[in-house]
Simulated assay, not measured.
Amino acid sequence: MKKKIIYRYLMLAYYLLCINGGCNNINERVYYDSFTTDISLSGKTLKTDSVMLRYPFRIEHKDSLAIIMDLHHPDFFYHAFTYPRFEPLFSFGKRGQAPEEILSAENFRLTDNGMWGLDANKHLLTKMSVGNIAQSTNEKETPLDKEIIRALDFALYNDSCFVIPDYSGKYRFHIIDRNGNIRSSHGKIPSRKHKKGNIALAQAWRSFIDYNPGNHTLAMVTQLGEVLEIYNLKDSTHIVKIGPHGEPEYNESGGMAIPSGIMGFSDVQVTDKYIYTVFHGRSFKEIAQQRQPVTDGGQYIYVFSLEGDPLYKYTLDHFIYGIDVNERTREIYAVDVNSNQPVVKYKLKH
């Protein structure tokens, strides 16, 4: 108890010092061990019979259109549906090596007039025109700067730039322009165990990201361990939140990171009010010892405030990977890779 009181006074003193001294940045690292509210949720499975999805990884909607990204589909990476009924429309993003085909899909982002998709193997971002009719066309391909090491996620920053995580270990993320060039680089990996950044550390700290331009909030969640980082790209503040499983654990072999701890987060979405994340929390030992059929995904949705306060922990009746949050209708649509009917709808309770 005394330690907690002393810590609070130190943080208050530091905050007051920054106010009086005119600090621009308040970098804060806080450990959390529980959420304000625990809630169990049961979902409604939606029928998508005419589209056989193999490994649905991401889901997002814009107006009356929803897109699901499937990592292992034999022919197409993207599948369009009506929203919110999820009636199949068409598939696109053909798998292949031809000029307008895709070698690997990492993520996509819907815009007012189409979508952007990231192909890590081809090292480029592609803008596609997608409508509610059975067609899609590639409008622009943006090769990424050669200094960017195999980009595995991205977010839209504004009309002319993207945010892409850095995997060299030197920075945390880059701002790149629509020509793929690095405009600026920001942050450091906030590890206490490993002070020197390298590629292995960057691999272990691989993070999924999302950015909300309305509140200037960039959230990064680690695929291993349990770390949430929040950057305000307007005032440059940086908050680090570390959960009970701690920072990513790994062993280094041949300059590569071999995971040795837990599977952490698999998706994040920043809304106007909250930060929603999908959390797994299972050790690799536990995953390896599963009996067939193996269950993949996370059973928890963690909800944080925009300042990183742990607010709501949802325990689900499905194991999921990607989410799409609609705060207006108080609904979350999630994808379950273990089911032939992978789209599950949940009603928010907060």
Score class of each variant (00 low, 15 high):
Gln290Pro: 00
Thr329Gln: 11
Arg328Phe: 06
Thr237Tyr: 10
Ile230Tyr: 01
Met263Gly: 07
Arg206Tyr: 12
Lys313His: 09
His245Pro: 00
His318Trp: 05
Gly322Met: 00
Asp267Val: 06
Tyr321Arg: 11
Leu316Thr: 07
Thr295Ser: 04
Glu307Phe: 09
Lys234Val: 01
Ala288Met: 10
Tyr274Val: 11
Asn251Glu: 13
Arg206Phe: 12
Tyr321Cys: 00
Val268Pro: 04
Gly264Thr: 09
Asp272Glu: 13
Asp296Trp: 13
Val294Tyr: 14
Leu233His: 08
Gly225Gln: 13
Phe208Leu: 13
Met220Glu: 15
Arg206Glu: 14
Val303Gly: 02
Asp296Leu: 14
Asp272Tyr: 00
Gly225Trp: 14
Ile262Ser: 07
Leu228Gln: 07
Val240Lys: 10
Ile320Tyr: 07
Glu229Trp: 02
Ile258Asn: 06
His238Tyr: 15
Ile239Trp: 01
Gly214Trp: 04
Ile242Asn: 05
Asp272Gln: 12
Asp317Gln: 09
Arg282Trp: 00
Gln269Arg: 14
Asn232Pro: 04
Met220His: 11
Thr315Ser: 15
Gln299Ile: 06
Ala257Tyr: 07
Leu316Lys: 11
Leu316Cys: 09
Tyr333Cys: 06
Ile258Val: 11
Ala334Pro: 13
Asp272Leu: 03
Thr329Asp: 12
Gln299Asp: 12
Glu229Arg: 08
Ile301Thr: 05
Glu286Ile: 02
Tyr231Ala: 07
His216Ile: 03
Asn251Leu: 05
Val303Phe: 02
Asp272Phe: 00
Ala257Lys: 11
Ser266Asn: 10
Val270Ser: 07
Asn215Thr: 01
Asn212Met: 10
Tyr314Ile: 06
Tyr333Phe: 15
Thr271His: 08
Arg282Val: 10
Thr222Tyr: 03
His318Tyr: 13
Met256Glu: 15
Ile287Arg: 03
Asp317Ile: 05
Asp235Val: 08
Gly214Ser: 14
Tyr300Ser: 08
Pro293His: 09
Leu228Trp: 05
Ala334Lys: 11
Gly214Cys: 03
Ala219Trp: 01
Met263Asn: 11
His216Phe: 14
Val268His: 05
Glu226Leu: 10
Leu218Thr: 12
Asp324Val: 01
His280Leu: 05
Leu218Asp: 09
Asn232Gly: 04
Met263Ala: 11
Ile275Trp: 12
Glu226Phe: 08
His245Trp: 10
Asp296Lys: 14
Lys241Asp: 00
Ile258Ser: 01
